[in-house]
């Protein structure tokens, strides 16, 4: 008998797709309903533009070149945001791995760094913008710093937590295999790497938020910068497609990480015999 419910339930692919599409359909219908209603009341309404209006505005916007630089604004924005994302995520991930692994593996370092990390992680970056201006220049630097701050502390705490959850037997085993204290950190790294990727995947929404906020602090190009400039005009016919682009990047990164975990770390989700 096949289980229809419960966390081991096997659902055929077509049912999965159908179930997945229903909420989107519902959201689209709801949007269309309210958009139409608003447009009847006020044909100039920009709060909920119609889909065709969004399509036309966006395709026009994508083709348009900036009158001063002569470049296509949309691609400049996309490029800037992607660079900030890659830089911010990689710096946060690599540094968090380094600090997290050492703090998780060596109690002395843990005692040194964890209190300050715990305190700093509680500070919302947006609340200390004047201080951040002193650390980084407005523009790319601040966007990257924001992404870094959003991600770094969460990851460090999670890495330390995951290392502490490694069964003690495995630590003992390592020493009986002749591992040094230094090797302990290295082996711990390999054991938790997929877990940290998983954690990164789950914490990605923090990154999108940080990217948008960071870009308001003086980035001249960027998806977030454009959204906030256009917000002045309530130009949702371009803002919504921009959000769609961000969503697409988000979904790609999300499934990209999932793909890496599945391919490279098959043992992590190891279920199948």
């Amino acid at each position: 008998m096949r289980f229809r419910f419960g966390n081991r339930a096997q659902i055929p692919l077509w049912e999965k797709i159908l179930l997945g599409v229903i909420p989107f359909l519902f959201a689209a219908l709801l949007y269309n309903h309210f958009a139409t209603q608003r447009l009847i009341e006020n044909p100039r309404d920009k709060v909920l533009p119609s889909v065709s209006k969004m399509y036309h505005s966006m395709s026009e916007f994508v083709m348009k070149t900036d009158r001063h630089s002569g470049k296509q604004q949309f691609f400049e924005d996309l490029k800037a945001s992607v660079i900030s994302l890659i830089a911010g995520i990689s710096v946060a991930f690599v540094l968090a791995l380094f600090i997290g692994i050492t703090a998780g593996s060596y109690p002395l370092i843990n005692a040194l760094v964890m209190p300050i990390i715990t305190v700093f992680s509680a500070i919302p970056p947006a609340a200390i913008v004047p201080v951040l201006f002193m650390i980084a220049d407005p523009g790319y630097e601040l966007s990257i710093l924001f992404i870094f701050m959003a991600l770094f502390f969460v990851l460090v705490k999670d890495i330390v937590n995951q290392i502490h959850k490694i069964p003690r037997n495995l630590n003992t085993l390592l020493f009986t295999k002749g591992a040094s204290e230094l090797e302990l950190g290295r082996e711990n790294l390999y054991m938790i790497l997929p877990g940290i990727l998983q954690s990164l995947k789950i914490n990605l929404p923090l990154v999108w938020f940080a990217l948008l906020y960071g870009e308001t602090l003086g980035a001249q190009n960027g998806l977030g910068t454009r959204i906030f400039i256009l917000k002045r005009f309530s130009a949702n016919d371009i803002i919504f497609p921009y959000i769609l682009v961000i969503t697409l990047i988000a979904v790609t990164v999300f499934y990209g990480i999932e793909f890496i975990i599945r391919k490279r770390y098959a043992w992590y989700n190891g279920d199948e015999k």
């Binding site: 037997n169 085993l173 009986t176 295999k177 002749g178 082996e187 043992w267 992590y268 190891g270």
Partner: peptide, 19 residues
Amino acid sequence: KGPNRDMGFIPQSYSLFPN
């Protein structure tokens, strides 16, 4: 002073590295 390479150890659970 601590577990070392002269001792083999086989616990009941988590006797292998999952990775």
